[in-house]
Amino acid sequence: MIKQTPSRVRRAAVALALPLLTAGALVACSESAPAEPPAAGSPSAAPVAASSAPSAGAELHLVENNGHRLAFHVTPGRLPAIVLDAGGGEDSSYWAALVPRLAQDTGATIITYDRAGLGDSDEVPGPWDAKAAAADLAAGLDQLGVPDGVLLVSHSQAGEVATYTVREHPGLVAGAVLVDANLPQFFTDEQVARIVAVNGSQIEALKAQPSTKRTRQLLATAENFGPAHLAYHELTWPDSVPTTVIVSERTPFEDSPEDAQRWRDAAAAFVKAGPDRTLVTATGTSHDVPKDAPALVLAEIEKMTR
């Protein structure tokens, strides 16, 4: 066990919370709240004026699943589609700089979306549920008429959504690029206990901030974190879905070498656990790989499309 000073423990607490409460999300919580969803009654899957579309030329479509609306942004192109899913506390705008470059380089249909409780999507009461988020994604793609065989690109917390998606919806995903993503191998009993132990002060600080969609969504993720991630640890990735895992050099745990190594070990273990899996280290990057090294992420997506 690495001995840490109190100040280092506090920094590590933020890092340990990153799979749950990303540093960027905590900063963003102090900013003004995102615009609320468009008024009820919009036709399901119908294009509407896109006030927060991630790129020029993207259309905002509203779909419904289990009584709530979800916002999908579609940049038209050829199929199969490339679907981008942002990390915890982030909505589709996270990919704003990457979408036009990806559309130009691949010519593919590019889809981003806001998970429930973020961006232009409705909030859903209760603790955050990765399996339900996967059902939302699958339902949205189905209502948009997107054929199976998409390429799924998932950052951070979206790795959990990706795992449930490939397990619960066989054939929907033909390949995946997991970008410094939450992988089942990381969430051992010991690691979950460590995260839960240090998250208390972070959660209290979040509760003290103004209530916005984003803060409420992060608190919903915290509500059932322990049991949800112990269950997630037991899941496996299907051998039928080829996968590239991009791991950041500094990881989410820049001030905790022990946890950073566990993060890297989890990525390596995931890759070794099945066929057609590739591990790529994003040299010099923080957890925010898509923004620190967009060219690398683009290159790995393009490799997977081929």
Rank of each mutant, 00 (worst) to 15 (best):
R277F: 06
P257Q: 03
A39Y: 03
F270D: 04
N199D: 12
P80C: 01
E300Y: 01
P275S: 15
A273D: 08
A295K: 15
S256L: 13
L296K: 12
G140R: 05
I110G: 05
R214V: 10
P242D: 10
P76H: 14
D292W: 09
D105F: 14
A45V: 13
V146W: 13
G119P: 01
G284C: 03
G77H: 06
A58F: 01
L20F: 08
L230F: 00
A222T: 02
Y164Q: 04
V192S: 05
Q4R: 07
A49E: 15
V177I: 11
A133H: 01
A133V: 01
L60P: 02
D105L: 15
A25Y: 13
A86S: 15
G89I: 09
L235G: 01
L21C: 12
A208Y: 07
N65R: 12
G126E: 07
S248L: 05
A45K: 06
V9F: 11
P127M: 11
S93W: 14
S211A: 13
H229W: 04
R10D: 11
A181C: 08
A86V: 10
E204P: 04
F186D: 12
A56Q: 09
Q261G: 03
H169W: 07
E254G: 10
D288A: 02
A17I: 10
P290L: 12
L218G: 05
E31K: 14
G284L: 04
R78G: 14
A86T: 09
P6S: 08
T283K: 13
A49G: 14
R115Y: 12
E249D: 14
P257V: 06
G226W: 01
D114N: 07
A133I: 00
P6R: 08
L141S: 05
D276V: 09
L26R: 10
I82A: 07
E302A: 12
Q202Y: 01
A260S: 07
P290D: 13
L151V: 14
T5P: 02
S240W: 04
G88C: 14
R264C: 02
A266T: 01
E168W: 07
R167Q: 08
L118N: 11
T243S: 10
W95P: 11
V271A: 08
I246M: 04
A97W: 07
A17T: 12
N224C: 08
P238R: 00
F186L: 15
